[in-house]
Write a protein that binds this DNA or RNA. Structure first.
Lengths: 338, 338
DNA sequence: TATTTTAGAGTTATCGATAACCCCACCAAA
DNA sequence: TTTGGTGGGGTTATCGATAACTCTAAAATA
């Protein structure tokens, strides 16, 4: 590999002069600058960012740790994050935690050994606190994505889960549904808690019953089997006329399960959920959802991070960006009692 | 940040001894080893991978450069790549080229300055040759994804595009379609060429007409507006009864365009395409596709790369992995002439 | 007992860049 | 003539790790 010293000797100058030309610092005569530039081109020189990182104590690497890149929500988050990182001159690593604390912990080690300048992370849940504290102990700037963690003070980009839940329930109620159940992610995840709370408050507000067993809590995880969900469904007698799913993955799994039991959606049970099902759900719109501004999650998250990196000594107060949700009405809700 | 020297002095040994403990090399007494380990834990030491990369001349970084992380196909590729990278102890950068040569070129510079150990790339097209040669000139191991580039000899993971096209056309023919058109990506992309060729061969084989203007070539790109596609449609008289789309994005855009013109799918025109549409398609299967093993693209691609990295001096011949396609019949095809 | 071996370390140079400091010639002002 | 500012650029130390070599005391062997 061509180094700065190769350039220096071919150009008959010192390495420092080459460095100055590269970074446009110091005083260099036009003649010297031109000569160095030409040698760099001749030799196809590309600065070694690793060496630079070592001496500058800055890697210009940001890490995006999400729970599943295959989930359309996070996919779009990743796109936003990548666009922002590119715009601000950072490189972006990514990893999937699969909603798994141990996997997350492994990535924390990778992040630390990488000396990433900052981390944009959707924590697996409240138990992620240890992992986040590890990052904090090493002074790695952090921005939380979609989920807050009690005890961790930092910037966060999240959605208005309670409002989203309210929109879904109101929509169902407007279609005559009164017996509504919810399948949700683990209560150890703040967004799941907010969605549940929003769900219950909306029920109360509309005078709808919170019948026994109307809540089923499992994992948002990508490999979820919904093994017990079958029992949960059977236990509800009569079945609810509508079910709110805590996220898109759960909605998909639920619909699959319902169909396997010959329960039609939406004729027998209506299903709605949080998060859209990808850029292509517009082809044949089916599931009614409250969509979130996934791209903005990623873009704004990186921007918060970059802002933090620029602050240094006089840190500003933590920011908390709450993005609105939008109800997209499609075909997975039928009208009851007509 | 805690360094190896901090550990060394606290433990009363030299830095080299600490390094030996970390890497399990050389001879270290159990007592010393234990002492060093304890100091490392006490001080929360994490080795600096940057420094290590510099001296080892190896970053343990792989770069995944795709054209759009928001495309469900590449999303799944990314997941496979990430799983494989993790398995083999590599970190994974990613970037989107948006089917754009200039953006791709910028990323090539990033890759070079990063000193990534290898690159898994879906090139924007044949003109990517320059970019790939730049990588080659710097001896960066390369694996091509989904697309070959004339003049570039390296490992590649791709799909059986011709067979896929045949499956689609045969499926349409079996439903009575005889007037079939195709909307495809740029002919500068090898997979687009193969798909077109497969399409035309299949037509010929089945004795179907290749009427004038039955092929429309545009870009696979994510931001494609299909501005001229409208004119293309109008120029075909009568309209075809079925259209094959070169990939999922084009199919989506096409369907949107057809609907805007009040042309129903599949009643008026049937639409099929390459690549599945993501998790949504499980919920309410609509578009008939030939799906590709996207996860395997990513996983096997990284494996090829890692294999190359291990070879060093006696390189094996280039490998060319061709993955099969699978026809998934759904609702976007109607039967003609009943 | 004298001489090798060997276990268990330490020393020094190096990877490729940049920061901080130093140096010198030249020109202007005192 | 002396002083000192400034343009232009070189020297040296440093970032945090590892490779290659060296060193020493104790154990093994002759």
């Amino acid at each position: 590999m061509v180094t700065i010293y190769d350039i220096a000797s071919k150009a008959g100058v010192s390495a420092m002069t080459v460095s100055r030309v590269i970074n446009n610092t110091g005083r260099i005569s036009e003649k010297t600058r031109a000569k160095v530039r030409r040698v760099m081109e001749d030799l196809n020189y590309v600065p070694n960012q690793t060496a630079r990182s070592l001496v500058l104590q800055e890697t210009r690497i940001l890490f995006l740790l999400i729970t599943d890149i295959a989930n359309p929500f996070y996919t779009t988050v990743a796109r936003g994050a990548e666009d922002a990182a590119r715009h601000y001159g950072y490189r972006l690593f990514f990893g999937n935690s699969d909603e798994n604390i141990e996997k997350e912990q492994e990535y924390v080690q990778v992040i630390l050994s990488t000396r990433a300048d900052g981390v944009l992370i959707a924590p697996a849940g409240d138990p992620s606190r240890d992992n986040l504290e590890t990052l904090g102990k090493h002074r790695v700037p952090l921005v939380l994505l979609d989920r807050e963690v009690p005890g961790i003070a930092c910037d966060v980009v999240m959605g208005d889960s309670k409002e989203g839940a309210r929109q879904l329930v109101e929509h169902l109620a407007a279609h005559g549904h009164r017996r509504i159940a919810m399948i949700n992610g683990s209560p150890s995840i703040s967004s799941a808690r907010s969605r549940l709370q929003g769900f219950q408050e909306a029920l109360a507000l509309l005078g709808l019953p919170a019948f026994p067993g109307n809540i089923y809590e499992t994992s948002f995880g990508p490999t979820q089997q919904l093994a017990d969900a079958e029992a949960w469904l059977s236990a509800m007698d009569p079945l609810p006329t509508a079910i709110v799913a805590g996220n898109n993955v759960l909605a998909v799994e639920l619909i699959r399960l319902l169909r396997a039991r010959d329960i039609r959606v939406p004729e027998d049970i209506s299903v709605v959920c949080f998060d859209d099902l990808g850029p292509y759900s517009e082809v044949d719109p089916f599931v009614t959802v409250v969509a979130q501004q996934a791209y903005q999650y990623g873009y704004l998250g990186i921007e918060l991070l970059v802002e933090r990196l620029r602050q240094g000594d006089e840190p500003e107060p933590w920011k908390r960006i709450v993005l609105p949700t939008e109800l997209l009405v499609r075909r997975s809700v039928s009208t009851v009692g007509e």
